[in-house]
Amino acid sequence: MPYLQVSNLSKTYTPGAEPVFNDVRFSIERGEFVVIIGHSGCGKSTILNVLSGLESPSTGDVIVDGREVKGPGLDRGVVFQSHALMPWFSVLENVCFAVRSRWPDKSRAEIEAQATQYLEMVGLGHALKKKPAELSGGMKQRVGIARAFAIQPKMLLLDEPFGALDALTRGTIQDELLKIVQATQQTIFMITHDVDEAILLADRILLMSNGPRARIAEIVEVTMPRYRTRAGLHHDPQYYRIRNHLVDFLVSRSNDYAGLPPGEPRVLRPGLDEDPVTSPPVVRLVS
């Protein structure tokens, strides 16, 4: 049984209207890094909020570690797109707040030590006393990541964590995240708009078709070796095949799945295709 199992998930906001997404099904293994990509409005954030327990689905259920998700919990850490730091707390206090929530019986010194350790891990050991308003966007997001990691959750949910950052900062933090993930073997579910980010970080990439009635149309396995670097990524021939596949999906195929009958998404390994240009993945529409 996989660590996380999502079945028959759908969300309808206004009664009677078409669901934003339906028949969403996927699973995540322990230690796996799964990224979800799709156009705006297809319900990616809603799916993540359902996994975190902040929103409830209209139908379907989420099983994490053998138990159904009924609400938010400390076993799932969340990194919010808007970093969501408390501006009245210092950087250290923000992380301490999370650590104290997880281990209320720990002493103040223990809590501070643990929070400091995770802040040093994201390279913010020098900014413990600063208020979030004094930090750049990238540093704020690092605090958000440290806060999520510091409670040592069984699973991390990242909602477009680098969406608001400039390209240079984004690259640096991606590298850091990659290092941390490789060291901690954390199970991660992440939303992104960035195809390169997905290939760099993910073991599998879930591709969502456009809404309404969006669903996970294809699952792309990233077949490149797991220890990737931003510098070495584009030297691997698989990179371009996967990238082309993802971009083709987003540009042209994401609309073709509307109205398809429910079923398991297709699992693809475009990185292993011999010649992706002459034999693009064929999608037949079944009426």
Binding site: L54, L74, G77, F80, M86, F97, A98, I151
Partner: peptide, 29 residues
């Protein structure tokens, strides 16, 4: 009070009284 801050408290399973004093009160102060 910003939804995000309340969501952080929810994902951290912060108890209502602690949430009132450490999140809502400083946010609304």
């Amino acid at each position: 009070v910003r939804r995000d801050w309340l969501n952080v408290a929810r994902t951290l399973e912060v108890r209502p009284l602690r949430r009132a004093f450490t999140v809502i009160l400083p946010a609304a102060a």
